[in-house]
Design a binder for these strands. Structure first.
Lengths: 338, 338
DNA sequence: TAAATTACCGGAAACGATACCGAAAACGAT
DNA sequence: ATCGTTTTCGGTATCGTTTCCGGTAATTTA
C-alpha cells in the first residue's frame, strides 16, 4: 500500500511541491493553466492530499467526534444522522463512538478523540450523577476545546448544550392521564442517577400536586430502561394486587413491556389500565393498542448540537448557549378512554 | 488549545526527543531509571504522544473503519458493538460511518477512511447489484488494503466476507408455514436489487417447489424494508380481495406493518392469516401476537468480521475466507395455528 | 592493560503536507 | 530604457513523531 505523494506529482511535472500544494488549496497565487495541468496529472496519478499530513501541518482536522451512550435505540441514531447532515456538507467527517452506558469507556472514547485532535466534540454522557468525567470534559472545554453536551446533562452546566424539556413534557403526559379521568397513576421511572429520569419524575410529581391527587393514589417505581424491566414491575404489581388505572413509563420500551405483561394477564389496555410512553419510537404506531408517547425532536436536536459546535469552532469567543427543546404529545389508543 | 509535545518534555528533562520517544515505545535501548523518570514527568506535564504525528511517521494508525448502510435498525448496531468488543481491547479504535443506503455516500465514506489511512475496513454495502463501487473496493483490497465485507454481498466475491445463509433460513421459514398447513402463501420481499432479498426469494421458491405448491398459490410482491410499505401492500391486497393464508416478510418491520394493517381490517393473526418476519428485532416478543422470526447471530457476525480483518492485517499473505452463518427460527404466536 | 563489546543516548533525516519569504518574470507607465 | 507593481513560482522551515546512524562511556574479554 503506497500512496502517491505531492513530491511524485511535483517531480513528474518539474514544478515545486509548493505549486502542487497551491493547486489544491486555491488560496495562493497560481496561474490558471498550471493549476489545471497539475490537477489533471494529479488525478491521473491517483494523487490525493494525505489528510494525516494535512492535519499535522495545519491545526484543523475537519474531524468531529460524537460520543453516545448507545445507539441500539433509535434516539441517538436519529440524532447522529442529523449531526452528519449538518457537518458533512461543510467538509467535516463525523467519527462516532459508543460508550455502552459505561462511564469509563466514555472517558476513553473522549480521550481518544481529543488525542486524535478532533476540531470539536458532541457528548451525550452516560449516567450523569456520578459525573467523575464531567470535570475532565469541562476542563477541556475551558481550555478552548469546543464541546457541546447533549440530552443527559444538568441544566446548570456552564457549557453549550442541547436538552429536552423533560420536566415539562412529563408533566403534560401525566396531566393528560389525569384529564382522562384516571385516578390512580403510577410512574415507572428510569434509574434515579440519570438526570433525565429525575426530570421526568419531577414533572410527574408536579402534575400530581397541581391536580391535588392524594399521596396514596400515585407511586414512583424505579424500573430501568428495558422492556424486561417493565415486565418485571408489572408482574410484581399483579402479585401484590396493586394495579393502578394508568401508567406513565420512562420510555417506549418499558411501556411496551408493561403492556405485554398486562395483556398476558388478561388486563385490557386502555380499558382497565392506560399506558403512555416517552421518547417515541417507530414501534409506537405499530403495536396494539397503539402507544401514546412523547416525541422528541431528534433531528432538530442533532442539527442544533452541530450548529452550536460550529459556532464554537468558528468563533473563539463564543459564549455558551443552551437550547431546551420541546416535543409533541402523541395521544393514541393506549391512553384513550374508549 | 496547545498540546504538550515531545520537545517540551525533552527540554524540561534535558534529554533528547529520541529518548522520550524511546521511553514511550519501549523497544529501543533506554535505561530503566531514565525511562521511568521520563514517563513520570510526561504524565505530570499532561503529555501524550500525538497520534497524528505518529501515524505520519509510522505506517500504522490503529484505526479500523466500519461502513454500514444504516444503524437505525438494531441489526448493524449489534454488529458494530461486537466488532468493537473484539478490536478495542487490542488497542484499535473503531470509526463508524453510515451511508444512509446511498452508494455515492458510501464511496465517499470508504474513501475518507482510506485517505485517513485506516489499517483496515469492514464494509456492509448498500445495494449490491448496482455495484459500481465494488470495483473500487476490490481494487483497494487487491492492492493490499485489508477489507472484510459483510452481509449484503455476493457469495462469489473473492474477498473475506461474513454472510448469513439467507437462502437456507428463508427456506426454513417458508417450510414452517407450509408444514403448519397454510396453502396460499405470499412473500413480501425487499428490493430486487438487494442480494439478500434475492436470496430470501430463492429460499421461498425452493420451499414452494419442494412441497409442490401450485403456482397460483404463491406470489412474490416486491415491498421494501419499512413498516409503511408492508402496510401499503396489505391495503392493496385487501382492496383486490386477494388475501393469502400466510405471509413471509423480508424483515420484522414489514411484518409488523402487515400485521397492523391486517388487524385494523378485522383480519385475525394468526387465525385468518399467519405472518413471519426475518432478522429478528427486540420488538418481535413485545407485540401482539408475538412475531415469529429468524434470528441472525449479529454478535457472532461482528466478531467474526473483526477476526477476519485482524488476520488480514497481521498476515500479509492471508488467503481470503468466507464465513456463512446460520440463525434460529423462533416460532411464536403469529405463525402458530391456535 | 589494551581491545572489543555492550548499553545508552543525541543528532538528524524522514513521514507528507502547508505557509512564509523572497525572487524571477511579466506588465504597464513614465 | 528604466522603474515600480503585480503575478507566479521555488526554497525551505514547520508540524510532532519515529528511527537510523553514529558516538561516548561503561563493561567485558583477551
Amino acid at each position: 500500500m503506497k500512496h502517491v505523494t505531492i513530491k511524485d506529482v511535483a517531480h513528474k511535472l518539474n514544478v515545486s511541491v509548493s505549486s502542487v500544494s497551491r493547486a489544491f488549496n486555491d488560496k495562493y497565487d497560481i496561474k490558471k493553466e498550471t493549476k489545471e495541468l497539475i490537477l489533471k496529472t494529479a488525478e491521473d496519478m491517483g494523487y490525493f492530499p494525505n489528510p494525516i499530513a494535512k492535519k499535522l501541518s495545519q491545526n484543523k482536522t475537519f474531524n468531529i467526534g460524537v460520543v453516545v451512550p448507545e445507539f441500539i435505540n433509535e434516539f441517538y441514531s436519529e440524532v447522529i444522522i442529523a449531526i452528519q447532515e449538518v457537518l458533512m456538507p461543510l467538509g467535516y467527517q463525523v467519527l462516532i463512538m459508543q460508550s455502552d452506558e459505561n462511564a469509563e469507556q466514555e472517558l476513553k472514547n473522549v480521550k481518544t478523540l481529543i488525542h486524535n485532535m478532533v476540531d470539536g466534540l458532541i457528548i451525550a454522557p452516560t449516567m450523569e450523577e456520578h459525573n467523575i468525567n464531567m470535570k475532565y470534559y469541562l476542563n477541556q472545554h475551558n481550555n478552548g476545546n469546543p464541546i457541546v453536551f447533549m440530552s443527559r446533562v444538568d441544566e446548570s452546566l456552564s457549557a453549550s448544550k442541547v436538552l429536552f424539556n423533560n420536566k415539562k413534557w412529563s408533566f403534560f403526559a401525566t396531566e393528560h392521564l389525569i384529564r382522562q379521568g384516571y385516578q390512580k397513576i403510577y410512574h415507572l421511572s428510569g434509574y434515579k442517577d440519570l438526570c433525565v429520569s429525575n426530570d421526568r419524575i419531577d414533572g410527574f410529581k408536579r402534575a400530581m400536586n397541581k391536580h391535588k391527587i392524594p399521596k396514596d393514589n400515585f407511586k414512583i417505581i424505579e424500573t430501568g430502561l428495558l422492556a424486561e424491566e417493565g415486565m418485571e414491575v408489572i408482574e410484581d404489581l399483579i402479585y401484590m394486587h396493586d394495579i393502578p388505572n394508568a401508567i406513565f413509563c420512562v420510555n417506549d420500551l418499558v411501556a411496551m413491556g408493561a403492556i405485554k405483561k398486562l395483556k398476558s394477564n388478561g388486563i385490557r389496555v386502555p380499558e382497565d389500565v392506560a399506558v403512555i410512553g416517552f421518547t417515541e419510537t417507530r414501534m409506537a404506531e405499530l403495536i396494539t393498542p397503539q402507544l401514546s408517547s412523547i416525541k422528541q425532536p431528534t433531528s432538530e436536536m442533532g442539527k442544533k448540537a452541530a450548529e452550536l459546535l460550529l459556532k464554537q469552532i468558528e468563533n473563539e469567543a463564543f459564549e455558551h448557549e443552551t437550547v431546551v427543546m420541546n416535543g409533541v404529545l402523541n395521544i393514541r389508543e393506549s391512553s384513550l378512554i374508549p
